[in-house]
Amino acid sequence: MTAESAEGPVPEDPAADPARPAHVSLHDRVSGARGDLEQRAQQARDQLEQKVEHARDQFEATNERIKKRTGRDLFAAIGVGVVAGLGLLAALLFAKVVFVIAAVIIAGAAVVELSAALRARGRRIDLAPQLIGTAAIMIAAYWFAMPVVWTALFFALALIIVWRVLSQMMARDGRVYASIFSDIVVGCFVPIYIPLLASAALMLARGDGGEWWVLGFLIVVVVSDTSAYASGLLFGRGGRHKLAPSISPGKTWEGFYGALAMGAVAGVLVAIFLLGLPWWSGIVFGVVLVGAATLGDLGESMIKRDLGVKDMSSILPGHGGILDRLDSILPSAAVALVLFFFLGPLAS
């Protein structure tokens, strides 16, 4: 009988088989599992960082293509527009006095902007009477009747004329009569273009429920501007059908048609849900406001072309100047006031 059969099988020595692991303690197994988990977590983080980096690169590339084509930082413009819109919306719905104060300040800033651009082209524009006239017109529009508004406008124009004549008399710089007359005419244009048109929004806002009319026309104008921009990018590539090439080469008929369609849709929704008007009146509301907004945009483009500038200023990232954002709103406010008198009686 062999020793193996007598004493039973000989236990194997773990060390004798290098392929077989030795006994692993609980601590070692936990440490190994933790290491695997940390490794997987690090891999997941690395993959996430790569995806975020790729998305950011695509985002920046898209923004650069849009900026190269339109000259605007689209995403900065959206951010500024959202913040400004929410602030004005809150003031309009919950504190009309704050809205009035903000409107006066914005109109005054636009007057400063336009005056600075005109002075850069050699026009003598006196800022003090411009700002006094702006405040007088807009305050009269909210707190007083229409005859007072016309009186305030007359006061503003008279103040601008007298101030310029007296300033020129004291200057004694040999400026010729034709230049002085041009200075006066251009100076009188500023309060008619900015505060008088802007005052229409305050006339709307002061009545019961007027805040909804102001909000309604602003919605249509914003939708019109955004739709024109998007439609021009999608369908008007290469400027295939320019709307007004001698005034604004970037605008296309494709953009205008897109604005017209979406403006009509926005007008119907505003009429039904905000103003209590028949749906068909919303089409009139939207289409007329799109036309006013487009003309206002082209009008300001004409002014900028005459002044030789791309933007009135660079105070608003992605937008340019304050007047660059008010260009379509100013005439639309006056048109909305007219629509209020014609369509308002249809409200249920």
Rank of each mutant, 00 (worst) to 15 (best):
I194G: 02
D173N: 11
D208R: 11
L204M: 11
G210Y: 04
R206Y: 10
G210I: 06
L197V: 04
F217W: 11
D173F: 09
V221E: 07
S179L: 11
L202R: 00
A171M: 10
L196S: 01
S179T: 14
R164F: 05
V222F: 03
L204N: 03
G209N: 10
G216E: 00
M169C: 13
L218R: 05
I160H: 08
V221Y: 02
W163C: 15
W212C: 04
R175L: 13
G209Q: 08
G207D: 14
L166T: 11
M169P: 03
I160N: 07
R172G: 03
M203I: 11
Y193F: 07
P191A: 04
R172W: 06
D208M: 11
F217V: 05
S182E: 13
A205Y: 07
Y193E: 00
S224M: 07
I180S: 02
A198L: 01
R206W: 11
F217N: 06
P195Q: 04
V222S: 13
V165Q: 07
I194K: 09
V221G: 10
P195T: 08
V223P: 00
P191W: 08
Y193M: 09
M203Q: 07
L218S: 08
L196W: 02
A171T: 07
C188F: 11
R164I: 02
M169Y: 12
L196G: 00
V214E: 05
D173M: 03
S167R: 13
S167E: 15
G209M: 11
L197D: 00
L202K: 07
S224N: 15
Y177G: 03
V190A: 04
D173C: 08
D173K: 02
R164S: 12
G210S: 12
S179V: 14
A178K: 07
Y177V: 13
M169S: 14
A198V: 01
L166N: 08
A171N: 02
L218M: 15
L215Q: 08
V222D: 03
I180P: 00
A178G: 05
W212V: 06
I180C: 03
M170F: 15
C188I: 00
F181N: 08
Q168V: 12
M203S: 09
W213K: 05
V221I: 15
L215A: 12
V220E: 00
G207L: 13
A205C: 09
G210D: 09
W213M: 04
A178R: 07
V162K: 08
L204F: 08
D183I: 02
P195H: 06
R172H: 04
L196I: 05
F189V: 12
M203V: 02
R164K: 10
L204S: 09
Y193V: 02
L196T: 02
W212P: 00
V176W: 06
V214M: 10
A198D: 03
W163S: 15
V223L: 06
Q168E: 13
